[in-house]
Computed example of a mutant assay.
Amino acid sequence: MRIITLNVNGVRSAASKGFFRWLPMQAADIVCVQELKAQAGDITGEIASPDRYQSYFHCAEKKGYSGVGIYARRQPDNVMEGVGVPEIDAEGRYLRADFGPLSVISIYFPSGSSGEHRQAAKFFFMDRFFPMLRNLADCGREIILCGDWNIAHKEIDLKNWRSNQKNSGFLPEERLWLSEVFQDLGFIDIFRRINQQPEQYTWWSNRGQAWAKNVGWRIDYQIATPGIAARATAVSIYKTERFSDHSPLIIDYDYNL
């Protein structure tokens, strides 16, 4: 089983940059996308059904904002939109698809970088999502949460960590929260379990020459329960082409969907 996750930074923009021409060549079983910046009526043609994928979306109420999606080769047994918190669900941040004993979730955490009000919204999300993560960890299913968590966990996960310790995405309380997801709830950061090398990033600012100089952040993850995490066999970040300010995170599993 191959799973790809990508923050597309506008699904129509990613389409114009060749994402849906690239996708059929990747032999992915499931593809999770975030930051659609589209409404249901905008999702047509190759965006709606690339290469015969089944597609499911949870769009934000606000036009041109947020939204998540899942593409799957196999039709899910069940699809669930949202977490049941109106303020979160209005922004289209959570979509879950069940395949037998496995659940794959496309998740998009708020960014707090645009101001204190958005950092407060991020903390609101984190506070309410943690007990949901606990329930997922204890539900007896295998879970893979794919997406943009907007948190770099450790110093190795961003280039300029010293100068970012007071910036959203690398705040001490954000990093501690993510540590608790791993240590207290038992979830696994699959990429880091397999690849401990530095300078492995998934997002680069559009300012300066961040991409050219590889001044990046690793904020996109596949985070999973221990059983399915142990079946991961290979991880990679695709950087040959650019479809977004993020890069696709690709993980292969010894698992039959």
Rank of each mutant, 00 (worst) to 15 (best):
M1L: 13
M1V: 08
M1F: 08
I3D: 03
T5R: 10
A14I: 09
A14E: 04
S16V: 03
F20D: 00
F20K: 03
R21A: 13
W22R: 08
A27Q: 13
A28Y: 06
Q34Y: 00
E35L: 07
Q39D: 02
A40W: 03
S49L: 15
D51A: 15
R52L: 15
Y53E: 14
S55Y: 15
F57M: 12
H58S: 14
A60G: 13
A60V: 12
K62H: 13
G67F: 09
Y71N: 10
Y71R: 09
R74T: 14
Q75A: 14
P76K: 07
N78A: 14
G84W: 03
V85Q: 08
P86F: 15
P86A: 15
G92S: 12
I105N: 04
S106N: 13
K122V: 00
F124N: 01
F124A: 01
M126S: 09
F129A: 02
M132F: 05
D138L: 09
C139G: 04
E142P: 08
I143Y: 02
C146H: 12
G147D: 09
I151G: 06
D157I: 11
L158K: 01
K159S: 05
N160H: 15
S168I: 03
L171I: 05
W177L: 03
S179A: 05
E180Y: 08
G186H: 03
F187M: 02
I190Y: 00
Q196M: 01
Q197I: 01
Y201L: 13
W204G: 04
N206A: 08
R207H: 12
Q209R: 09
W211G: 01
W211N: 01
K213D: 13
R218P: 04
I219W: 01
D220H: 03
Q222Y: 01
I223Q: 00
P226H: 00
P226F: 01
G227M: 10
G227C: 07
A229Y: 01
A230S: 15
A234D: 02
Y238N: 08
S247F: 11
Y253N: 00
Y253H: 02
D254Q: 05
N256I: 02
